[in-house]
Design a protein around this nucleic acid. Structure first.
Length: 878
RNA sequence: GGGCGGUUAGCUCAGUUGGUUAGAGUACUACCUUGACAUGGUAGGGGUCAUUGGUUCGAGUCCAUUACCGCCCACCA
């Protein structure tokens, strides 16, 4: 056997196992009707993506479940892949082009797309390499990309299908227009910025008098598109304007005064100009009152020909000039400062222009119904549960989905317009006489391919063939989805809708929304804030296992993870501890075989064996329970505590003594320990894959198994959980701690052999102690341990009381009487307070009447125990 | 503005249907280079459970209120 280094050399070992797993195709899955399956699809990261803490957490979680289920005997299939990420990718390539002083128009659509593909092949997919480093046990043979042929065909099929069902329509809608990239962006691709602006108060004169309605606006330049002035129906100030018309400045056009609840009486003047083509709310008002929507801005945010003398001007300049002219015409009342939120494009940072344009929409109401039902009826469960409410609210108020994007990178819309007749053709394949048709220029929203992901990765094709598609029928619906809460609507809800619409089945049964990873102060990690740690760098520095363990240990269900580099010590130290425990056991095993002492054939399990068996099964049961509840931090803590405290601090320490005491049982003892250690490695493998694999091979050297990840984790055996033994053991631990405590507090070196007398009247306790006296002596460095019923002595002793034991530590002249009695007095004081409280409770008639008999009995027992202890303590003082 | 979470030791979190003197890890302090591990061992100090009020024999736990933090939705011209 090779010398085992003091620390795990993760740098070389990680790569070794990662390649081993992949080259041997350990995680490739095939439908296996004999086994239960566990299938998961990865939330496809952007092809431009780089692994950050969110990915690390999310993929570690998925890997934990996949490895755990695999080791529980499931046929596990975890499908990896990437998303083409329309805007992100296109913007990235456009930036590269810009460095060469070129734009995409210089290349043309076809060449540009070629270039993006080249970029993808060369630079894309970094994140998949990083997933390998993370140890993700995905099935690489099933890797998919949302622009793969099959997936693209699915996208087209679904578009055509929904179009023919009348669920996709073209409409004039206000969209968030990004003037910089010249495309509509979704609500999720914009953010709001607080901005200081001006609020202009303008007179709109009545047609037949000199009276006017004062309106307030931040955007006077859009007045050319005004088609009404609206007031609140309850606003008494404007009653006389009801059914009247006002004159639009510059154009001298008459527009009606209308009443609508939408208008806030308190804001501005209480009268609002309505510009349906350039404001979302105005558009809604316009629809209610049948108003015309007049576009006065061009796509690059300049006033168009309707603006007369101002046409061709940029917004800001036009605004200045218009205000100046209004003032000259005595139509400007005043200008106020105003702070308000302005929508900004996430990608280009340009101010979003609400713009009326022709876009393609999916009608959502009908699709939402079944998707709402399956969550309400519990067919799909969310963790944490509260996201169900969020989901209901959104689904019940769902809006139509704008799916067209004015981009080149993505799935081009399968719609062709006849050059002459304008007729619309919608099929997956182009029309035969293609020269007479123009295809719609737009591409589909990236989420239009992602919402089919759980179906399309398994070869679904929306045809009769699906019924006999073994892969699809075996793996779909998937079992588990782990994702970020931000994309509950963008992605999760839509996958449920697509699943229900196309298969009548849910796409997954449980959804876990993982924590948001923040910095130590609770701020979201971002490059601009500079509080961004590089996940990969830290993996290199501390080891992947340490990072995986730490981040899971820190992630409570439903709360954020506050991550700081120094916290990585939790995982690093634990991995080291695990490593060294294994190293020690292997060394012991070697040493024992070298000693070559004849072994006893019969070995009877003792209390320590029963205890560790019980603790192992309890911990395993806890771990499983926490996993099933998605309480990952508790799961990792349960294992951490078992390994560190029970196994290393107590079991291994006891084992050293046990072997020294009975070398004729050494082989049996160390083999038992190694067996537990193997079990520990297995239960930890899902969260700490590399170290456990490495150690497992060290332990089982020459026995030919492939990988620990293909081993089985046994069921936790409730029958082997022995609460009585665990309680007894706690008593021993208490006594050991108390004796050590006495030594330290009396200035006796821990290693100095001392005499201790334990006094107890309980036969049961004495039997227990006698069994362990040898261990207690070693653990506390005693030269004598006397167990008796009565004890008196003239010598000086340090004393303590633990449950039904009195402990006397011989001081042999080192006594510190003051310190000693101070300690006991303090304990007596505390105990007395406690007893007073109990007495009060037990003398309270109300309590005796209303509390359950069980509770009362419990309280009485506490009382007598406390009195008992008090009595013993008082005796010590005298 | 509407909705939803959270607030327990310096920090990160547990705390079951109300019933011990509220627990753990970490950080801190002291001691220990004991033949796996100083990325270690042993022990110790540290909390009026955010506020106020209520229900109850009994509240960290249930109800209400306020404050602060966070998230989601909407975005007011």
């Amino acid at each position: 056997m090779n010398e085992i280094p003091k620390n795990f050399d993760y740098k070389s070992s990680e790569l070794k196992w990662q390649e081993f797993w992949e080259n041997n195709k350990l995680y490739e899955s095939k439908p296996n009707p004999v086994k239960k399956k566990f299938s998961v699809v990865i939330p496809p990261p952007n092809v431009t993506g780089i692994l950050h803490f969110g990915h690390m957490l999310n993929n570690t979680i998925q890997d934990i479940y996949c490895r755990w289920k695999r080791m529980k005997g499931f046929e596990v299939c975890w499908v990896p892949g990437m998303d083409h990420a329309g805007i992100a990718t296109q913007v990235m390539v456009e930036k590269e082009l810009a460095k060469q002083g070129k734009t995409k128009y210089d290349l043309g659509r076809e060449e540009f797309i070629k270039l993006v593909w080249q970029w993808k092949e060369k630079n894309g997919g970094t994140i998949l390499k990083q997933l390998r480093k993370l140890g993700a046990s995905v099935d690489w043979s099933k890797e998919r990309f949302t622009l793969d042929d099959v997936l693209s065909l699915n996208v087209k099929k679904v578009f055509v299908d929904l179009y023919k069902k009348g669920l996709i329509y073209r409409g004039n809608r206000i969209v968030n227009w990004d003037p910089a990239s010249q495309t509509a962006v979704s609500d999720d691709e914009i953010f709001y910025e607080e901005k200081n602006d001006k609020l202009y108060f303008i007179k709109y004169k009545l047609e037949d008098s000199d009276d006017y309605i004062p309106i307030a606006t931040t955007r006077p330049e859009t007045l050319f598109g005004d088609t009404a002035v609206a007031v609140n129906p309850e606003d008494q100030r404007f009653k006389q304007f009801k059914n009247k018309k006002v004159i639009l400045p510059f154009l001298n056009k008459l527009i009606p005064v209308i009443e609508d609840d939408y208008v806030d009486k308190e804001f501005g003047t209480g009268a609002l100009k309505i510009t349906p083509a350039h404001d979302l709310n105005d558009f809604e008002v316009g629809k209610r009152h049948n108003l015309e929507a007049i576009t006065v801005l061009s796509k690059d945010s300049k006033l168009n020909e309707l603006a007369g003398e101002f046409s061709g001007l940029e917004i800001i300049e036009a605004r200045k000039k218009i205000v100046k002219r209004l003032k000259e015409m005595d139509l400007l009342i005043k200008i106020e400062d105003l702070t308000h939120n302005v929508a900004v494009s996430e990608r280009t940072k340009a101010v979003i222009e609400p713009y009326l344009s022709e876009q393609w929409f999916v009608s959502m109401k009908q699709l939402a119904q079944p998707a709402l039902r399956v969550v309400k009826e519990g067919e799909i469960k969310f963790f944490p549960e509260r996201y169900e409410k969020v989901y209901y609210h959104w689904m019940e108020n769902i809006r139509d989905w704008c799916i067209s994007r004015q981009l080149w990178w993505g799935h081009q819309i399968p719609i062709w317009y006849h050059k002459e007749t304008g007729e619309i053709y919608c099929e997956t394949d182009p029309p035969a006489d293609i020269q007479n048709w123009n295809q719609d220029e737009d591409v589909l929203d990236t989420w239009f391919s992602s919402w089919l992901w759980p179906l399309s990765v398994f070869g679904w094709e929306n045809s009769e063939k699906d019924a006999t598609n073994e892969t699809l029928n075996y793996y779909y619906p998937t079992d588990f989805l782990s994702t970020a809460p931000e994309i509950i609507f963008l992605w999760v809800a839509r996958m449920i809708m697509a699943g229900m619409e196309y298969t009548g089945k849910i796409p997954f049964s449980e959804v876990y929304f993982h924590s948001t990873v923040r910095d130590g102060k609770g701020l979201k990690m971002s490059k601009s804030l500079g509080n961004f740690s590089d996940a990969i760098e830290l993996m290199d520095k501390y080891g992947t296992d340490a990072m995986r363990f730490t981040i899971v240990y820190l992630a409570p269900l439903g709360n954020d993870v506050l991550f700081e580099e120094e916290k990585t010590q939790i995982g690093r130290n634990f991995v080291t501890k695990l490593w060294n425990a294994g190293r020690f056991l292997i060394m012991m095993k070697e040493k024992i075989s070298e000693d070559n002492i004849e072994q006893n054939k019969s070995y009877n399990a003792d209390l320590i064996d029963v205890w560790i068996e019980s603790r192992y099964n309890s911990s395993l049961a806890d771990a499983e329970k926490f996993l099933s509840e998605y309480r990952l931090n508790e799961y990792s803590k349960a294992l951490y505590n078992f390994v560190w405290s029970d196994f290393c601090d107590w079991y291994i320490e006891l084992l050293k003594i046990k072997i020294a005491n009975s070398p004729e049982n050494a082989v049996r003892i160390i083999d038992t320990a190694l067996n537990y250690y193997e079990n520990i490695l297995k239960t930890l493998h899902p969260v700490i894959p590399y170290v456990t694999e490495e150690l497992w091979h060290s332990i089982r050297e020459g026995r030919g198994e492939q990988s620990i990840s293909l081993e089985r984790i046994s069921e936790s055996d409730k029958g082997n959980i022995d609460q009585k033994t665990e309680d007894d053991f706690e008593k021993i631990k208490e006594i050991v701690t108390a004796i050590r405590n006495l030594k330290i507090n009396n200035g006796i070196k821990a290693s100095l052999p001392s005499d201790v007398t334990l006094v107890s009247n309980s036969d049961e306790s004495k039997v227990l102690l006698n069994l362990f006296s040898n261990y207690v002596m070693k653990l506390c460095s005693l030269k004598n341990l006397n167990i008796t019923e009565k004890f008196t002595s003239e010598k000086e002793f340090a004393t303590a009381v633990i449950s039904n034991f009195e402990i006397y530590l011989s001081l042999e002249g080192t006594l510190n009487i003051e310190k000693q009695s101070e300690k006991v007095n303090k304990e007596i004081a505390n105990l007395t307070m406690y007893i007073v409280g109990l007495n009060k409770k037990l003398n309270n008639e109300n309590f005796l009447q209303k509390a359950s008999a069980e509770v009362i009995a419990k309280e009485k027992e506490k009382q007598s125990e406390a009195n008992n202890k008090l009595e013993k303590l008082q005796k010590l003082i005298i």
